[in-house]
Simulated assay, not measured.
Amino acid sequence: MAVKELHSAPRLSALYPKALLGGLRTGGREAGGALPATEYVRGDVVVDPAQLAAYNQVCGFRLTDELPATYQHILAFPLQMALMTEKDFPFPVLGMVHVANRITQTRPVRLDEPFTLRVRAENLRPHEKGTQFDVVSELVPNASAEHHDPIWTDVSTYLRRGGGSGGDRSKGAREQLAPPAPSAIWRVPGDIGRRYAEVSGDRNPIHLHPLTARLFGFRSAIAHGMWTKARCLAAFEGRLPEAFTIDVRFKLPVFLPAKVAFTSWRTEEGWAAELWDARRPKPHLDATITAG
């Protein structure tokens, strides 16, 4: 696999217009193709304490000198966008759906700890609604050997709709389920998309304002999937081991503003959680947390 070394974070302000042009000029991309055999690598990454504090506040985490397991995703996101907006990437970024995210940390990452980020795409495979693939992001401490195993791994699964084998056969059954008794009710403000965009850099227009969201077929702005995951993870602070995996499947979007119901329960492996629309039996995500 070829390695593309970066000395700074790619500018998202330049990548979003590139993503828009790629969506308008799909050409052969619609037919798909092989994922690029390129890994983006950025070394000597350091955390901005002010950005971390703002992130923690928006997502509901406490202020500590350890990074929440979801925080590194926003540091890897510019590399992900750079990878997915290159000409050799088989799909346009516009129209892709983030359907799942799995994060594994073998130990917490400290605020003052420099590290290297690695990002690549892999595992292109069919889906009943189209084609899906994974974008894998890894964090390796600078103090480790060059080929040391990562201490943090993020696997984001994306779906490109079209050409699949059929509809979502589980949808009807899922929507018939009654929501579980909530552990908490959260009111999600209408500006949470803009607030999360400010700290994460993810300024996808579907999250920012009802008018821009309607241009892409949504009745109002929707919350970032990674904000909902982070908010759910924050509810477990103080109850998790240092090494764990949190695996989330994103279901129906959270239309802003919203009132959502969160519930969690213990399992043999660790914890499970769900987020629902508090007014109707509509699931937003489900999550599992396993130790080790």
Rank of each mutant, 00 (worst) to 15 (best):
G27E: 13
G23V: 04
L124A: 14
E86M: 10
V97F: 02
R279N: 15
H224C: 06
A287I: 02
G172M: 08
A184E: 11
G167Q: 14
T263C: 12
A19F: 07
A291Y: 15
R11K: 12
L233V: 14
R231G: 07
L256R: 10
R169I: 12
V140L: 00
V109Y: 01
L139E: 01
T212R: 03
I192M: 05
A31P: 07
E268N: 13
K251M: 10
P108N: 10
P92T: 02
R231I: 08
G193E: 04
A261Y: 11
P281L: 05
A143D: 15
E30S: 15
P108K: 11
A230N: 11
H148P: 06
T70D: 13
A258K: 09
L24H: 05
K251V: 09
P210F: 01
G27L: 15
G167R: 15
M84K: 02
N56Y: 12
V93P: 06
L177T: 15
G163S: 04
H207M: 01
R102W: 07
P210W: 01
R174A: 08
W186E: 14
T85E: 04
P210M: 02
A50G: 08
M84N: 03
A258F: 10
H7E: 12
V199H: 02
V136W: 07
F236L: 07
T157N: 01
P68V: 13
G238F: 07
R102G: 10
D277H: 06
H284V: 10
L35K: 06
V93T: 09
G166R: 01
S183I: 05
E113N: 13
M84Y: 03
V135S: 00
T288Y: 01
F216M: 04
L12C: 02
P49G: 02
N56V: 10
K129Q: 10
L215P: 06
A31T: 13
P90S: 09
F115K: 04
M96P: 00
T245E: 11
L256V: 14
T267Y: 04
F91T: 02
E138L: 05
I151A: 01
R219E: 13
P253D: 12
G270M: 10
I151G: 00
E30L: 15
T64E: 03
T290C: 09
S137V: 04
P182Y: 09
D154A: 12
I103T: 11
G225P: 00
D247C: 03
R169F: 11
V46Y: 12
E86N: 08
S183C: 10
P180Y: 05
Y196R: 02
R102I: 12
H209G: 03
I206L: 10
L111W: 02
G225F: 00
A235Q: 11
S264P: 01
R125D: 07
F250W: 02
Y158R: 03
T26V: 14
A291H: 15
L211H: 03
G201L: 01
R62T: 13
M84Q: 06
R118K: 11
A235E: 08
Y158I: 03
R118G: 04
G22R: 02
F89D: 00
P189G: 04
T153I: 14
N142W: 01
T212G: 05
E138S: 08
N204H: 08
P281T: 05
G162D: 05
D88V: 00
